[in-house]
């Protein structure tokens, strides 16, 4: 298929998943506020923005700043608004390849989000955004042929999920700010799944291990990485090990096995570094995928030669 279309699909996958992940990230802070009272949530917000989202550590940020930047800022590719805009833009360009239902779902979500507007009731916004994102994923899975086009969509989705989950997990490790592992688990929607797998043995280490390593829970980091790897496998079954072709798979394989086979104790001790590595890997894999399937770099324009 055309590289341009493949690239659009890849980014639709990433941006739609980013909506979900960002909503959950903001939710961690919100849930923590509910649990721990009003103390320290500005600090949480600050921590989240600086550490987790790579912002300015010295800036003094409030919860509403967090909300504005990550939820409503249309100019930021990290915010929910920015993500809806980008997803819809890419969907329009790839409209011929999307199923009618999928295009309609993305377009409608973008339209409605635009009408929700900044205001209060963020909990309503966040849950709406999460639902829409999941709905779009479900429509993609059930109305598109599971061919190359769908593979790019799914690849983008799982790479983004690994990245966002890594960030969400990092919030649990923050020294100050009162973010609890309970909030982290809740924001990932993993309460019941955790209970079933650990039979209720709730402690910080178990929750972290669950969110990073559980092979069955679809929002765990390992699960997302494995799915991304499987997608790359489908895209290029010939296994050429050299060059960009194998680079993405190699990187994913490395991070996955390093997470899988290290003892759980080590993981938890080095959690922030490990999660940062996951984020870096996702960027590297994304670049490798781009170089392999949609090379050409940013769109340049042609300039007339001097006469």
């Amino acid at each position: 298929m055309l590289s341009r279309i493949a690239e659009s699909l890849f980014w639709i996958g990433r941006y739609v998943e980013r909506v979900d992940g960002t909503a959950r990230l903001v939710d961690v802070v919100r849930l923590s506020m509910l649990e721990g009272g009003l103390a320290g949530h500005d600090e949480s917000a600050n921590m989240v923005l600086s550490v987790v989202m790579g912002g300015d550590p010295d800036a003094r940020v409030t919860y509403s700043d967090l909300r504005d930047r990550l939820v409503f800022d249309p100019t930021s590719a990290s915010s929910i608004s920015g993500s809806w805009n980008a997803a819809r833009d890419n969907a329009r360009r790839a409209r011929e390849t999307l199923s009618t239902d999928l295009w309609a779902a993305i377009n409608t979500a973008w339209l409605r989000w635009g009408r929700l507007g900044p205001p209060d009731g963020t909990a309503r916004h966040l849950s709406w955004a999460r639902e829409r994102s999941i709905l779009i994923g479900g429509i993609a899975d059930s109305t598109m042929s599971h061919d190359e086009a769908w593979d790019f969509l799914v690849l983008g989705r799982y790479l983004e999920r690994a990245d966002m989950t890594a960030r969400i997990i990092t919030t649990g490790t923050l020294p100050t700010g009162g973010l609890s592992w309970q909030s982290v688990l809740s924001s990932c929607g993993g309460n019941q799944a955790f209970m079933r797998s650990n039979q209720g043995l709730f402690n910080d280490r178990n929750v972290a291990t669950f969110l990073v390593l559980n092979r069955e829970f679809p929002r765990s980091v390992l699960y997302a990485l494995a799915e991304a790897e499987a997608t790359l496998e489908r895209l290029d079954p010939d296994h050429t090990p050299i060059g960009f072709t194998g680079e993405g798979r190699r990187l994913l394989g490395r991070i996955r096995t390093s997470l899988e086979y290290r003892l759980p104790t080590n993981i938890i001790n080095e959690l922030p570094q490990q999660m940062a590595r996951v984020e870096q890997m996702v960027t590297a894999v994304s670049d490798a995928v781009g170089a392999r399937y949609f090379p050409g770099g940013p769109e340049l324009s042609w300039t007339e030669e001097l006469r």
Partner: peptide, 20 residues
């Protein structure tokens, strides 16, 4: 006129400037 006979004409990819 000159347009029809320019010794060199064309386009290049990018927005860098050129010195001749």
């Amino acid at each position: 006129d000159y347009e029809d006979v320019a010794p060199f004409k064309g386009v290049y990819l990018g927005d860098q400037d050129a010195d001749l």
